[in-house]
Simulated scan of single mutants.
Amino acid sequence: MKKHLLLLTAALSCGLFSYAQVSFGVKAGYSMAGMSAKNIITDNTPYEANTKTLPAFHAGVIADISLAKNFSLQPGLFYSAKGAKLHQISTGPADEIEKVVSTAHLNYLELPVNFLYKRALGPGKIFAGFGPYLAYGVGGKIKTEYEHYASRESEVKFENKEDYAAGITYVKPFDAGANFIAGYELKMGLLLSVNYSLGLTNTSPYESETQKNHYLGISVGYLLHKHK
């Protein structure tokens, strides 16, 4: 069944690229990365962590596939930095309440697939759209500062594993969600865009935590060539 599905996907992809007008390009930009986070501290009471955004970046390649007069499909593959600064409360060794500040830098390979509506305006086209994304973690670091204890830095391992090993923080390898995008494309290929990426999956494997990524990005890109 899986083999037949792969063959069907390949056939449809070949057909799409054969008959559709396709542009290839590069894209990069600045991101304001953040997280929504909740912890359970005592009596099964959820505590919503106070989070702040971190400066980050994204860079990669895109394909713009014309589907109809004003509609196109725009998949991409990006190296995307995510994370946040989280102000949390935890319990210390003597069950005292401990204030904790964690700065998480997480790196992903991200595959967004956006459905775009384009309309001619001035010397180019204005566009807007949305679509899903899937990301896979490739590396990261987390620095944790405690109110009463020494700070520590841990390596991020992207595994679905609930383990409190020294110097290691586990994060689920896959992240998925929705992407919303708008921008302007010039006839000569230059494009400017703003996008908001909303994580819909819990990336923490720890039972007492829920964490979801999000970021606001500003990008500059260039479509290199077109063919039919």
Score class of each variant (00 low, 15 high):
T103M: 03
I40F: 15
K157I: 10
L192A: 12
G189N: 00
M188P: 01
A182M: 12
L134S: 00
S66T: 14
I181Y: 00
E98H: 12
N44Q: 11
F17S: 07
P205Q: 08
K52W: 01
K69Y: 09
N160Y: 04
K187H: 07
Y196V: 13
Y215V: 06
A37V: 09
D95S: 15
G122A: 06
V22K: 11
G140K: 05
A56V: 08
V138E: 09
K27G: 00
N39I: 01
L106H: 04
G129E: 03
P75Q: 06
N44V: 06
D163H: 08
Y136C: 04
I218R: 03
N202A: 04
L223I: 08
G221I: 11
N179Q: 12
H225G: 07
C14F: 13
C14R: 02
K143S: 14
Y117Q: 00
L121A: 15
L116D: 01
P205V: 09
L191A: 07
F71Q: 01
H105Y: 10
G140T: 13
Y170W: 05
G131V: 02
K212D: 04
I97V: 14
Q88G: 02
E147Y: 08
H105A: 10
V113A: 13
Y196S: 12
A59C: 01
L186H: 08
N213M: 02
M32K: 01
S13T: 14
Q211G: 03
A37H: 12
K99L: 09
K38A: 14
G137F: 11
E48G: 04
L73K: 03
I218V: 15
A176E: 02
K125G: 05
L224Q: 09
K143P: 02
F24Y: 15
A10C: 10
L134W: 04
A10V: 11
A182H: 01
H214Q: 14
D95W: 08
L116P: 02
S102V: 05
G92S: 15
S23E: 15
K82W: 03
G167E: 04
G221S: 11
T45W: 03
Y117V: 00
L186E: 05
V156W: 00
Y222K: 06
S204L: 09
Y30A: 01
K99D: 14
K82N: 14
L109A: 07
L73Q: 02
E159C: 01
V100D: 01
S13C: 12
M1G: 15
I40L: 11
G34N: 12
H214L: 04
V101K: 13
T144E: 15
T53V: 15
N44S: 07
E110T: 06
K85Y: 03
Y79P: 00
G139H: 02
A20N: 07
T201N: 12
N39Q: 12
Y164A: 07
R152E: 15
A49H: 00
F78K: 06
K52L: 08
T203G: 03
F115E: 04
R152M: 10
G83V: 07
S208F: 11
S204P: 05
